[in-house]
Design a protein around this nucleic acid. Sequence first.
DNA 1: ATAAATCAGTACTATTTCGGTACCATATCG
DNA 2: CGATATGGTACCGAAATAGTACTGATTTAT
Lengths: 148, 148
Amino acid sequence: MLRVSKLTDYATAVMAALADAPARVHSAQELAERVRLELPTVSKLLKQLAHAGLVDSFRGVNGGYRLARASERISVADIVTAMEGPIGMTECSAQSGLCGLEPHCGVRVNWQRINQAIAEALAGVSLADMLKPSRRRGAIPIHVAPSL
Amino acid sequence: MLRVSKLTDYATAVMAALADAPARVHSAQELAERVRLELPTVSKLLKQLAHAGLVDSFRGVNGGYRLARASERISVADIVTAMEGPIGMTECSAQSGLCGLEPHCGVRVNWQRINQAIAEALAGVSLADMLKPSRRRGAIPIHVAPSL
DNA sequence: ATAAATCAGTACTATTTCGGTACCATATCG
DNA sequence: CGATATGGTACCGAAATAGTACTGATTTAT
């Protein structure tokens, strides 16, 4: 299906909730209620997001999470990468020397370019964009790397 | 990691091998040797590709597989879809009414647009393109749907 | 100082998906 | 009819995923 994991999906929803009031600190509990997910689940993914530097965390009473930077400066690619690691459509496009077919298949290089096109597509959409209901006119141009 | 499955990856390699001699009929055995994979695996994915109409199959002695149409008219999206089903980054972007968060998360519509951008990126690269070592200059422009 | 609230880290388990294999049926050619 | 191939189905083991639980650390408030 070519999909991101559920956790990643949830993460975008949680990040969107944070972006709604970027100045405030939100507890994991509050966010869980907001997006209708279990607290442990939300807590888990917030830790990952904090580890990746996308959110700041605060301990103790009245602690919680806050966006580490403006929603315009956080891309969907950032969130996906934080949750799933480096974006790579195939084994060999993320890291070479693994599939053993490399000398014979000949399609590796081109997969890498497709990869890059998709990574750029994800990088080109910010968290702020995700909050816009369905507004902006005019396509965002995305390019696959030269020489495909 | 946001990746296609290994089978899909293998499928592109097998399709590339077929595209190398599009007029001939290749047995599963021959293709398996060519791409250095086990016969049952190659056989399995060829069945799927045949079912999706991307290759024609011929039974009996001297039977085998052949590209159903010119490699220029087979896209990477075709192969991915044949192997993995409809392209959809999230549950809800492939099919609504499943995640229960839809009324609250607000990011669903935008995921759908990202989806579409990626689907178009994959659709814009043909099997013939995949065979080119690393040649063509000039980016292929891809657009996310209007109103993101 | 103590208790409460909240995040941090680790570990565990159940479920699902994926990759791979086996088997038998069916079709074609000689 | 027999050899060669694909078609279809079913199965199994391994890995990834999702979710849960528990314990520790930190901060605030009283």
